[in-house]
Design a protein around this nucleic acid. Structure first.
Lengths: 364, 364
DNA sequence: TTGAAAGCGGTACCAC
DNA sequence: GTGGTACCGCTTTCAA
């Protein structure tokens, strides 16, 4: 307590310690360790020996400050939650692509908290990461745009870059890259699949009303209804979180309320899983009595019984694309501002037909 | 291409730029930004204005180098895969605890690759993180111990610390903290649950033969068999990866091979899910015809139909405990070497009874 | 081939 | 209160 030197600091060895102990100059040690410069075998041996003995490692901060070999490029991935989210697959995609290039990738979670998101972006910016990749979940359009705008510009000013994945794009003059999937197309096709099977009474569980992806899926479904000349009943839409519990509760409530439906169009696979569970508990069979479809095509979809018909979203590939965009950006200076690609990419989606859809039962 | 100055370097503003533009000294700028020193309001305003204009941020590397306010403590979490692994929940636990303290946490994935693990540990060590937390998945005892030994010592030498979660502990004199769950107790209780329900022909899918956790679960099951005076048939054990596919294939193969069993003791919930699917496809009902139990108690367990009886492992809490251990370590200098706790903690597990177990059917 | 020294961007101590 | 300035640990000219 009264000590001047806190014993908690084990005094990490420095390059000077190594130099001294090896009887050479710091410059030589640096050369040996960087390996990008000719050095005599004897010197190298002596230095490496001491490095071993001292268990020395170069201080990344110092190295990066000195502007040496640009430190390993690092990308930061920010998402709400690692557990179970479909976006965890995007993170995996980014990580795999990064490690393939010898880059480092780090994941930070925001817990859906804007404050924490801001703090993390700031932190990463300070850290000098090559890019910050923001995954999924955009709510308020107003505040959101401004917020992202600021992020993009401040990262850009720090020599970094912002990538938005699964979020609405910003204005053209903002230094940002967007990677998206064809949300509309998938939702339209999925609703169409149900409609073409003959369903007319479809319970729609699009997700949170404020979430842009949910809104888009809902309006795409509407268009599909219109195409099929089927009236769209707003009462058949139940908003709620993208989780198992919501799917379960919503279906249970509708069943209890004697709402008539022959199919459930769920906003995500997890919601679909909850819906299926509620149907099953009510003694209804899927798909004989009620058809159910999801969205995302996460592993769960093919593990459910019956296997879920859903929309495949290329999450991992989106991660690859996001990382490639960062690499291109770094290399290209700012060519991508003119190039057609690079600024905003959209990957395709498609319906995966499995076993959870059948034409509506004659009766009921 | 022929440019001397790569245009890719947007020349991030420095503290000196700010000082100059604001007509003050760098020291003053530093003071304003650190906020830990009295400064005149006028000066503060002028500086902040320029900071805004230039969108200036302090360089984390420089700050950390200068040894100023110790940078935000950062912990690195390393695991195989973020998607779907039970350990993603531990990561979440660490992250939540870290963010509560205002610490930063980063997740890196190894993809089960020892090389990548090594690279990440090295990188983190260089980065000067407060601790590296390694999650799950230990294979070869020989090489493994040596490897971890080295990690522990080198991190320690760099003023950092190694925490092992869900991995076997090392020797007492190695500077490491271990957080574990009562794997044995859970496995023993789970097998006991099946045995006490009357099952005698149990198919055991413990997981990968080389994985320490799988080995432990298997031997605990054996002990339970012994306790119940039930002969243990090695032929009823099928090793394989901790995934859905393995559960599915193993059960299908046994069914095809006319192996007689009334229950499945799966190594994880995911394996159990695969097993249930195979049974269902064979026209067998769970639990009426065959009982199935898992291990982990991830959300999936309660989302399956029937809901899965399994062993609850406090993954998130393990994350909290791991982070607390790091905080204690940092604070305590090296008191924990003497203290009984802190070095090696074991959290309890327990069976969660749901709907996937029934006494064996009379016939069959 | 090797060594000396000038920064990289900040922080903090020491004067004024 | 404010401005100089000596480092932090490392890389990289520039000489020797």
């Amino acid at each position: 307590m009264s000590q001047r030197k806190p014993p908690a600091a084990p005094a990490r060895a420095t390059i000077r310690d190594v130099a001294e102990r090896a009887g050479v100059s710091v410059a030589s040690v640096s050369r040996v360790l960087s390996g990008n410069y000719p050095v005599s075998d004897d010197l190298r041996r002596r230095v490496l020996k001491v490095v071993q003995d001292l268990d020395y490692v170069t201080n990344a901060h110092a190295r990066s400050l000195a502007g040496g070999t640009t430190a390993t490029p690092t990308v930061a991935i920010l998402l709400d939650d690692v557990t179970g989210s479909a976006f965890a697959h995007v993170a995996k995609g980014v990580e795999d692509a990064a490690s393939l290039r010898g880059w480092l990738s780090l994941v930070g979670t925001t817990g859906g908290d804007a404050e924490r998101e801001l703090a993390l972006v700031e932190l990463m910016r300070r850290q000098g990461v090559a890019a910050v990749i923001l995954l999924g979940g955009a709510y308020d359009m107003h505040e959101y745009r401004e917020r992202m705008d600021r992020f993009a510009r401040s990262l850009d000013a720090a020599g970094s870059h912002l990538v938005l994945v699964g979020r609405p794009p910003l204005d053209r003059d903002v230094p940002v890259t967007t990677v998206n999937y064809d949300n509309d197309g998938g939702a339209y096709a999925m609703a169409g699949h149900l409609l073409s099977a003959g369903h007319r009474h479809i319970l729609v569980l699009p997700g949170p009303a404020e979430l842009t992806t949910a809104q888009a899926r809902l309006s795409a479904a509407r268009r599909a209804f219109a195409t099929y000349g089927t009236p769209f009943d707003p009462d058949m839409v139940r908003h709620g979180p993208y989780d198992y519990g919501h799917g379960f509760e919503a279906v249970r409530a509708c069943l209890a309320g004697r709402v008539r439906f022959t199919a459930v169009l769920a906003g995500t696979d997890v919601v679909a899983a909850g819906a299926m569970q509620a149907l099953r508990e009510a003694g209804l069979r899927v798909p004989e009595d009620v058809s159910v479809v999801g969205y995302d095509d996460i592993p769960l979809a093919s593990q459910l019984t019956p296997q879920l018909t859903t929309v495949h979203v290329p999450y991992e590939e989106m991660g690859h694309v996001a990382l490639r965009a960062v690499a291109d950006w770094r290399r290209g200076g700012d060519v991508r501002r003119s190039g057609g690609d690079g600024g905003h990419q959209v990957l395709g989606t498609h319906v995966v037909v499995r076993q959870s859809v059948l034409p509506p039962a004659p009766a009921r």
